[in-house]
Design a binder for these strands. Structure first.
Lengths: 252, 252
DNA sequence: CGACAAGTTGATGTTACTCAAAAGTGGTGG
DNA sequence: CCACCACTTTTGAGTAACATCAACTTGTCG
């Protein structure tokens, strides 16, 4: 492999890993994905990836970086509906003339690639897309429960547990740590809080040695007991997916 | 038509109307749906229609009544993630071994029927299912914005506007009025509030002559200006769906 | 008539928001 | 290397929105 190819491979590894865990892919399917990854579009932080109400053309796959679905109010408030992490799919629709329901904005620098057509490429990829869609729905459910019924600190903890679970799917955990590049303002817009309150709540969680958060990296001191406390529900979306990926079984 | 058949038809008309508006159905498809509607399962209020983590078998269609997706906490709190209204579909999944991500509970007495297999029955029905799925996602987005960034009274108003829009799809508006059979407690669990606060907010809205709400019927005095005030976004999910159904064009 | 659920009211407490300013951080160009 | 800028994080003081607890009223149905 040439150095550039190696570099490209390292960048697309998380996305590949994620899809492969959702449904083990054949060699051909992996090649098709790699071909797609070789042709990226770079989007700078804060730029739109997709505009609300624009027709959805070809589906995309997020190769690197974090993005978010956003809604804005005329007075400047905004809500980040949910996050998109490496390996997440954008705009896979079943209807004939889909229209984007929300803006999608890059929260960090991001690269996206067009997602291979699953029908053409094969069943397992199709299944991976389907499970990815089901997971996305599952994450909406969690988000609604967080916003509707949790206190600020529980929202943050539940949300961090979700990030950990999702990043584990893409092999993006680094031992006990995982990346979290968002500003406190973005966290606030995600969790329905103000940046000030997020700041204070984070400080409290740090003081109590429940989390560590600095330099875009998070560490949860006791993820399992934390999960019990906030009644975090691990994603259980598909019968056989059971044990082949869990955050608990992350590399040391 | 026999009297019983007529009665059954009246009960299933809203569900039929909804699907037919999402994608105009052929005669055969309507017959297939009617056949499905002729074989209902009745569920009493407060009973479960689907249990969390149970495997999803055949998809269902809600013929009459209101249901909700629910999550419970161990201390008794609950969040109603979203509502299911007549004509809504339950458990249409693309993956191979789907598992229910949430409990679904009947909020009123309800009848559900198994949804005809769209692949077998035809493209338009399949398209109707697809658009129904996209709308469902759209409603999740609205719910998240409500919970994350709206005050109690805006939540209620935005939510009533959504109900109006959705009931219009199923021809369930009655002039300026529409049915709303939920208790204030259920409203509270939907909107992330307490029943007490819902009660007080509703009273304020009544006093200001913004809404009328009694006997399970709602009237919004000025839906259009209300929609502007809370920045309500009409569902725009599919390019051609444009004008063939809108709450604004409801029968007087 | 009595029982139970739903709606209403009052008093009080808490969580989170607002506004404003200070302190820290990182990147850029002279 | 430093000065400057923009952005992010942090701090403080005051306030508003919503929750909690408990009692009371109304309505419904057997």
């Amino acid at each position: 492999m040439s150095p550039e190819a190696l570099y490209a491979h390292a960048l697309s590894a998380p996305a590949m890993a994620r899809l492969n865990k959702l449904s083990p892919l054949s060699r051909d399917q992996q090649l098709a994905l790699n071909a797609a990854f070789a042709n990226p579009r770079n989007v700078k932080a804060q730029r739109e990836i997709q505009a609300e109400e624009s027709p959805v053309l070809n589906p995309l796959i997020l190769r690197t970086g974090w993005a978010g679905r956003v809604r804005h109010f005329s007075d400047g408030r905004r809500q980040i509906l949910g996050l998109l992490l490496p390996g997440d799919l954008i705009g896979i629709r079943r209807q004939r003339h889909p229209v984007a329901a929300t803006t999608i904005v890059a929260l960090t620098d991001v690269t996206v690639c067009s997602a291979p057509d699953a029908i053409a490429v094969g069943d397992e990829l199709n299944e991976a897309y389907a499970i990815s869609g089901a997971l996305e729905e599952f994450y909406w459910f969690r988000q609604i429960v967080r916003l509707g019924r949790m206190t600020a600190s529980d929202r943050i903890l539940d949300w961090l547990l979700e990030l950990r679970e999702r990043l584990a799917l893409a092999d993006l955990l680094m031992g006990e740590y995982f990346p979290m590049p968002l500003t406190q303002e973005a966290i606030a817009d995600t969790l329905g809080l103000t940046n000030v309150h997020v700041n204070r709540t984070l400080q409290a969680l740090r003081r109590q040695r429940i989390i560590e958060l600095a330099n875009g990296c998070v560490r949860l001191f006791e993820p399992n007991s934390l999960a019990r406390e906030v009644e975090f529900r691990p994603a259980m979306i598909s019968a056989p997916m059971a044990s082949n990926w869990r955050a608990d079984e992350a590399p040391h």
